[in-house]
Design a protein around this nucleic acid. Structure first.
Lengths: 328, 328
DNA sequence: CACGTCATTTGGATCGATCAAACTCTCAGA
DNA sequence: TCTGAGAGTTTGATCGATCCAAATGACGTG
């Protein structure tokens, strides 16, 4: 294990003071070019790296962003790709991602509170925003830097930077795609009303149909499971639907057992596997924007209030469908 | 933003010295019970939390574990669940997980080197071990604490703690399961020889067949894609196979388009979605064991050299199969 | 009653960086 | 020649915890 190289070692090696080394790294413009070169050479020669702990102690900045890692449920989600993008974008701005877990809003707030005392992350990224999100208001009250991936769905939580993907635009595009294929009776399988994300996605579908003067009555609510998706699809088909737009790939998976003209949401690996047309979120970009909004705020730059990205329809032909006679 | 509470504040409040507060938290046995109570009360009253930075500065311990977040490829992997388990287990031992990305072994080593200089993680968790893994030897040479999830496949990399799931035991169980269903000609679709994981999984299959005196010639190598899985399945079925054990769910997905008697590996969401029987890894436990091995080593306790866990066969009935006439 | 022992508590130094303020030159202008 | 400004560099203090060595106090013993 190489001995720790401190700023004092570099200073000695380059025949300058500690402060000058610090200046070379943090405010190079105040240092004479010749000195700067000499110090940089010393830094390289010794393999010096600033100690995050020491720097944090003095400046109060940790260069850490904290993110909650979500529980995976049925695994048909999008979080892991977002997290990967976040880690990469953060690294590009010299930030690192610190993970934590929580079971609900309340425990997440407790964890955030604890982290603030111990590791003092410079910023937080919240995902899965929802109506009456206690986390956002908690952070906002304390004036702590954070971004949400997911817009604030309640009025009271507005006013913080966020990044989101335009679900309504997505389902609208999906519905138009089905209209283009000649479908006239297109249903929507959603979640229970009241979820911001779900309602938004339903709105896009109904907007597209309304624009054509078509029936927007063919919609049902589910708990999001494939089973309920299948049941809902069954009923909607009986009521005359020939195609279905779904609030998620999970629901779409069930629907696909009833009819092939189905569009899902999130473009999960499952969609790719079974040939389900689905709406893909630009997750790497969403993550990059989150980091951008946060780091702008952290370095005092003016920040965009929010960013709304568009999903992309990924069209596929179903390769798998319900097996009528399950053997083995 | 609540003002920072330091150990000195607590000391003043409880009418003791800083050191006594520190002792209450770190070596309670040297403090008189009554004092201990008084200090703890002060800690609660003020909401004191140790500053990780200050502690690290003095002790050299960061209470951080660093893990590389893998790229997701086709998303049919297991890493996100492992990572979640790791974060939870780490938190239970008062460690936090720090993420980083890397594109290959070399860049991962560079990143680790950099992290060591800056954030000084106390330990590392390496995943996706392989033959001639440069990362493990690099860390071992420097005597840095790390665990791998995945055993060391080369002789030279042995000697560090690891946690792994017994792939051979898994495929052996899967093969026996198929034998129990009456199959006699069971094929194996694997990866190119030379990958430790892949060879191990093939070995379990061949062991089970050999034990019954059956033919172990029905095996092919692929690049792991569903397409090649499908092609391999086609050929093996033509050569007489009635059932197939697969090295991954991805390959199995392709194989399932040829015959329904297929077993995959990893029990990914895709397997659940399409009703693919698959071998599930005990990821939460694997993660917990990784943390255990690491923290044991970090606190000087004797550590188990390694841990080998068994996968579980999750049997399902295919709900989806190849669609003969793809409409829409 | 002085003294050693043990349990408990304390003050000062320290980790490695940055802040704030002071210092040293050099050079232009009075 | 002296002064002042400005560029460039240095010194000392500080962030909040823990290490170390030493002080304090209670208690039993010869």
């Amino acid at each position: 294990m190489a001995a720790k190289v401190t700023i004092a070692d570099v200073a000695r090696y380059a025949n300058v003071s500690r402060q000058t080394v610090s200046n070379v790294l943090n405010s190079p413009e105040v240092v004479k070019e010749e000195t700067r070169q000499r110090v940089l050479a010393a830094v390289n020669a010794l393999g010096y790296r600033v100690s995050a702990a020491a720097r944090q102690m003095r400046t109060g900045r940790s260069r850490l962003l904290a993110v909650r890692i979500e529980t995976t449920q049925d695994g048909m989600n999008v979080f892991d790709r977002f997290l990967h993008g976040l880690t990469e974008s953060a690294a590009r701005s010299d930030y690192r991602v610190l993970l934590y877990t929580a079971t609900d809003d309340r425990s997440e707030i407790d964890t955030i509170d604890q982290l603030l005392g111990e590791f003092e992350p410079d910023g937080f990224v919240l995902t899965s925003t929802h109506h009456g999100d206690a986390r956002a208001s908690w952070l906002a009250e304390r004036d702590l830097p954070f971004v949400t991936f997911g817009r604030p769905w309640g009025a009271s939580e507005a006013g913080h930077p966020w990044v989101d993907v335009d679900g309504a635009a997505g389902t609208e595009a999906a519905t138009r795609h089905l209209l283009g294929d000649g479908h006239r009776r297109i249903g929507f399988i959603g979640w229970e009303a009241g979820s911001g994300v779900g309602d938004d996605r339903r709105a896009g579908w109904s907007r597209a149909l309304a624009a054509e003067g078509l029936d927007t009555a063919l919609t049902l609510e589910t708990d999001g499971s494939p089973d309920q998706g299948r049941a809902a699809a069954q009923e909607l088909v009986e009521r005359g639907a020939t195609a279905l737009v779904c609030v998620s790939d999970s629901v779409a998976l069930g629907a696909l057992q009833v009819t092939p003209a189905v569009v899902g949401f999130d473009d999960t690996p499952v969609a790719a596997a079974i040939g389900l047309t689905s709406l893909g979120q630009p997750l790497a970009e969403a993550a990059a924007r989150c980091v951008e909004l946060l780091t702008d705020r952290l370095s005092g730059r003016p920040t965009a209030p929010h960013v709304l990205l568009s999903p992309t329809l990924v069209t596929r032909k179903p390769t798998l469908a319900i097996r009528k006679d399950p053997r083995s």
